[in-house]
Amino acid sequence: MSDIGKAFENGKAFIPFITCGDPDLDTTCRIIKSMAENGADIIELGIPFSDPTAEGPVIQAANERALSGGVTTDDIFDMVRRIRGEVDVPFAFMTYANVVYSYGSEKFISTCRETGVDALILPDLPFEEKGEFAPVCRKFGVDLISLIAPTSSNRVAMIAKEAEGFVYIVSSLGVTGTRSVIDSDLGPIIKTVRENTSVPCAIGFGISTPGQAAEMASISDGAIVGSAIVKMIAQYGKDAPRYVGEYIKKMKDAVR
């Protein structure tokens, strides 16, 4: 078992996302510390990918910035290794199947274990393809997070039954990015999830304001925010840690 479960023990969880190496790994380190100090319950660390097909323009741009800065999977593992002694919030890597597969699944996932990464979120790995990585994740005690979408309908129970860590509920159709209104009816999906697993569930995609986070956390166990934070980093660059910290505090207070 990983430490992911513990993240949901102090009320509703707030889960921020950041693209590693945007604008550079030193800033990423400082942002991670600031997130932890200000109440993040799990930190999603994005490993940049050249062609992130599930991302909207904001996170796509962050991936491009990070890769053009030359960051690699090895550099990111080194960074995690360094910061693990200072931060004890659980980490989840969020990246694309090819980043893991091409590194060597066994080598990637065992290094997750060794450096202290608790979970893996792969948006291009649906239930049917879990077999690609699930046995190795199990071997090294890394949770492979399952995603459920508003279009999952008859698939929700099947996915929830095998979920580990937490269930990532995608709030709406489309790619990542802030939305002014989240109008999917997630109630029935969450009800089915609850009936089929005791693993907590958190909602992501489209959330940016404290009001939205509070609303999403009220119907689930937590809220996940990516693009709103990445936008801040694009705006403030190396000065971002302070602004991100203030934002995390506000959001955590809202979901509590």
Binding site: P123, F127, E128, L147, I148, T151, M158
Partner: peptide, 22 residues
């Protein structure tokens, strides 16, 4: 776990976001 579909030897499959599966 249900089996991966559309394989040609080791190749193929359905590596797409859950949103598109149905």
């Amino acid at each position: 776990m249900s089996a991966s579909k559309g394989r040609f030897g080791d190749h193929g499959g359905q590596y797409i976001p859950e949103t598109l599966m149905n």
